[in-house]
Design a binder for these strands. Structure first.
Lengths: 190, 190
DNA sequence: GTCTATATTTGGATAGAC
DNA sequence: GTCTATCCAAATATAGAC
């Protein structure tokens, strides 16, 4: 099997995961079935088992893909000429709010009975470590400040998604919130 | 039927709701069944239908009870000699983190297919209006500051519940976060 | 009001032919 | 690899006796 290009099998597996994302966005992460996914890719439910061993393993694939996307996004921000805390914050909140379903999968536990497998969870740890290193470069080094930072951004994100989906009532407050954060922490971190 | 005291029927209904809370805490809001609840109160599943028309209506009862508890708590804080923003914040985060299941029921939408009924939702609106009035008394009057306030508190709560359940890694930051908030908003609100 | 028995639906997963 | 057919389990809800 050539490693360089995607095999047919891998392409089909990716199609199934795409269908899962689409259905999750429409009906919620726990609101679709194997039959639904199969129908979306023109198959019957049992055929999915040629690609995934269980429904949980499909969630795993989505979880890994979501973390991969966040890692990619972070690297885009890092490539900016002079990355700032404001950009990092706006980027994170945008990443989360542009796909609330993905946010729920990555950061909340809303699927009854499902938890990411060990290998899937490792992808989340990788992302967090990368984010921590990046924040350190931008001057946020104290553990408490990092915790306050994550609380501030996830709080804005949660409110935005829960109470104004599709709008910008809370996401528009990101710059203001970062100003507040900087004013509060600069004496201790810079 | 005497209105003053609780009837036997009402007591049994309350027992069922208590069992639901207990099971939700142990297995998640969507992780228990009518059979489980019934067993917990020494009944069989069909008997619950003498008290509630559906499982959804039991969630409704829990939702209303949770909002009732939050309203009661707010009134306790208001009775303080000189209520402060710090006390309001600490009280809210404590209320949420002392019962993560209740927080999820009241503020997130984690039960597939369930939404609070119109009458249940009204209890949530009542609580929010009360909180808004109270915050106004404490000097938080601008809409944007109120939104920032809710984001800050729910962010700390979410992080605490999701990433350090039972601990105080984020809840200990409440005072610090309120200081930050006050420093940022006092020029505009006081 | 509570029970047993059962209807009904749903959905994950498997067997085996092709 | 995909299908049809089916299993199996779970869970809400209803019927009707007591």
């Amino acid at each position: 099997m050539p490693a360089a290009r995607q095999t047919r099998h891998e392409r089909t597996a990716a199609e199934i995961v795409d269908a899962a994302w689409k259905l999750a966005a429409a009906r919620g992460l726990a609101g679709f079935t194997l039959r639904d996914m199969a129908a979306d890719v023109g198959m019957r439910a049992p055929s999915l088992y040629s690609y995934f061993g269980s429904k949980a393993s499909i969630y795993d694939a989505m979880f890994i893909e979501g973390n991969r996307a966040l890692m990619d996004r972070q690297q885009e921000w890092a490539a900016s000429d002079s990355p700032t805390l404001h950009e990092a914050a706006a980027g994170f909140v945008e990443f989360c709010t542009e796909n609330p379903t993905r946010y729920q999968l990555l950061f909340q536990r809303v699927i009854p009975g499902w938890h990411p497998s060990a290998t899937a969870y490792a992808s989340a740890v990788e992302v967090y470590d990368s984010m921590r290193a990046r924040l350190a470069q931008l001057g946020v080094r104290e553990a408490k400040h990092l915790d306050l930072w994550t609380a501030l951004l996830t709080g804005l994100t949660d409110q935005q998604i829960s109470n104004d989906p599709g709008g910008n009532r809370w996401s528009q407050l990101v710059d203001d919130a970062v100003d507040m954060f900087i004013a509060h922490t600069q004496g201790a971190t810079s």
